[in-house]
């Protein structure tokens, strides 16, 4: 194969691989650096000794992170929001995507336009905030899981997937006296596991990483998701309550905080980074389906 190539094509192939390897390094390096720093003696971070591998390997930063109450509360809340939120997302998305996928569903065009319009125009931050306030949802879990319960884009992906299920299956089921709902539950959903996996990933990642709704609608720190505590620690540099009480020397305390920041980034991101490679082949398909029909 390589022999048949012209000189120009050979050069291109080498150049292509080189560029992609450089891109891969740029992608991975910050992540590896954070990982290494989190396992190192914080002193070495400040001194700038870490380039790629951990220096003076230790788990101290992680021990402190998991003793921190904010992190634990945040983790607990984020898990609750993610599980409940994703369940609502999936339920609602299926409930609208399936009827819209049916050619014999009268009014699908109107309803599709009705929901598509919300992709391009919205009331905006303030009217939405006032609505949530008037509904009495401020400072409740519902303000986190309900306002974004359906993503139109995901509904379109799902609808397109459902449309590819052979019509004959439904006709046969109908003859056997199977109602639409039974058909959906017994036939369509089991056949749609790949797309449901993709949707679970898309919605789940969204909830895990979200902070905007919590920032606006929640005041009570006990209800904060992990991302808001992360914001306090990493960006607002509010590390009160961080670090062990015994540290007497201020410099040492600051050093310890520096290590904690790296560890807390790892703790917050790892679940998603471990999860997605397993679902990669599905979500590539999901995006593909979504791109075919808009």
């Amino acid at each position: 194969m390589l022999k048949k190539m012209s000189l120009g094509d050979k050069f291109f192939t080498v150049f292509n691989y080189f560029v992609l390897v450089v891109i891969a390094c740029l992608m991975v390096y910050p992540l590896l650096y954070v990982l290494s720093a989190s396992f190192s003696n914080p002193e070495r971070i400040v001194l700038g000794d870490i380039w790629l591998f951990p220096q003076e390997f230790r788990l101290d930063s992680y021990i402190t992170v998991f003793q921190n109450e904010d992190v634990l509360i945040g983790y607990r809340n984020t898990i609750i929001y993610t599980v409940l939120g994703t369940a609502i997302n999936l339920l609602f998305s299926i409930m609208i995507a399936y009827p819209l996928s049916r050619k014999d569903f009268y009014g699908r065009g109107v309803i599709t336009a009705f929901i598509m319009f919300t992709m391009f125009f919205s009331g905006g931050m303030i009217p939405t905030f006032l609505l949530i306030r008037d509904l009495g949802m401020l400072d409740t879990i519902w303000a986190i899981v309900l306002p974004g319960a359906v993503s139109v884009y995901n509904v379109i992906i799902m609808r397109t997937f459902f449309q590819n299920i052979p019509e004959e299956l439904r006709e046969a089921a109908e003859i056997d006296g199977c109602s639409n709902i039974t058909f959906l539950i017994r036939i369509v959903l089991p056949l749609s596991m790949p797309i449901i996996a993709v949707m679970t990933l898309f919605y789940g990642v969204g909830h895990w990483n979200a902070y905007f709704d919590a920032l606006i609608y929640l005041n009570d720190e006990d209800k904060y998701p992990l991302q808001l505590f992360l914001r306090q620690m990493l960006i607002q540099e509010d590390m009160s309550g961080m670090g062990s009480a015994g540290s007497e020397v201020l410099a040492e305390h600051l050093m310890q905080i520096e290590g904690l920041k790296y560890a807390v980034v790892v703790v917050a991101s790892l679940p998603m980074l471990i999860l997605y490679p397993f679902l990669q082949k599905y979500f590539v398909k999901g995006v593909m389906i979504g791109s075919l029909k808009g």
Partner: peptide, 14 residues
């Protein structure tokens, strides 16, 4: 798959 908070936090750190 990282959150915006983590990305911005990493920028502050690095």
């Amino acid at each position: 798959f990282l959150s915006v908070v983590v990305v911005v936090g990493m920028m502050f750190l690095l």
